[in-house]
Amino acid sequence: MLSRIADSLFWLSRYMERADGLLRATSTHYILSLDNVVMGAMTWKPVLEIFTTKNEEEIRQLEHDTAASLHTLLTDVNNQNSLKVVITRARENARGAQDHVTKEVWEEINALYHLLNQPTISERQGEQDVIQMMQLFSQHSLLYTGVADVTMPRGLGWSFMNLGKFIERCFEVIVMADKHYERIGYNLHEENVIIQWKELLFSLSGYELHLKTYRGADYNHNVLHQVLFNDDFPHSVLYSLTRIEKYLKDIVAENPSPGNANLLRCFGRLYSRVQYMDPKSIDSGSLKSFLADIREDLLQFSNALGQNFFSYQ
């Protein structure tokens, strides 16, 4: 497979996953923010911090303005990570690799792109059907995932797409978990109610699983276990890494190259750090550095992957 194609498929998938995460987080936050009684002082700050590159001052100006925040997150072309920009980039990558994605996948991405580029989209954002609109986008995003799964041939291209998807997901979970634990000062012993974890869990589609799986009121530890170590939870770090391992092995087996050893070493370090971690041993003092470390390792691995397979420029 051409390096450029591998690169395009990888990023196509990363951007689509990012769009999915962005939509889920934004609509969750929006819905919860309507509930003023419970979430008194809730602002858009955390979401803006995760999904935009705005500085503190800009965020301060935006955080209390729902309409402006939604615009920034969804359709602002000046925000490099807005839904519109992310989908446009996904489509560019799909176009560049058009002969390697199926017609169905291409058409689905194309449809979402055209939907986002309707001239009326900005007007609709400020009005009452904002939830409907986000739901429609989410549906398309899910449709893409399904269509890709059903139609894409398994092989190198599929493996690169999945690497992109799970690397992106892994980053997203780490960053979101970090943001939410930062709120409580990484203090795992502070008393908390489940309501306060609702946003994180809903943003990762894990609320129901949490209720079914975890008993007891130690929510701080339980949620942490779920998002990092629960291997049944498709948005956990461990689950994502397990998937990455599979696709990485497939790719390495088909592409013997001198850089593979370093790449596998890089990944192995990260994977074992999470896999063999005793969840109970993480305490308030080490949580912050643990999250920072796995994020750093993931970044290194992602760079090594790019250097090994995508260096065609």
Binding site: M1, L2, S3, A6
Partner: peptide
């Protein structure tokens, strides 16, 4: 890319 008057394409496999 051209090497020794031959044309090659850059793939993930070299």
């Amino acid at each position: 890319v051209i090497d020794d008057h031959k044309v090659y394409m850059k793939t993930t496999n070299g």
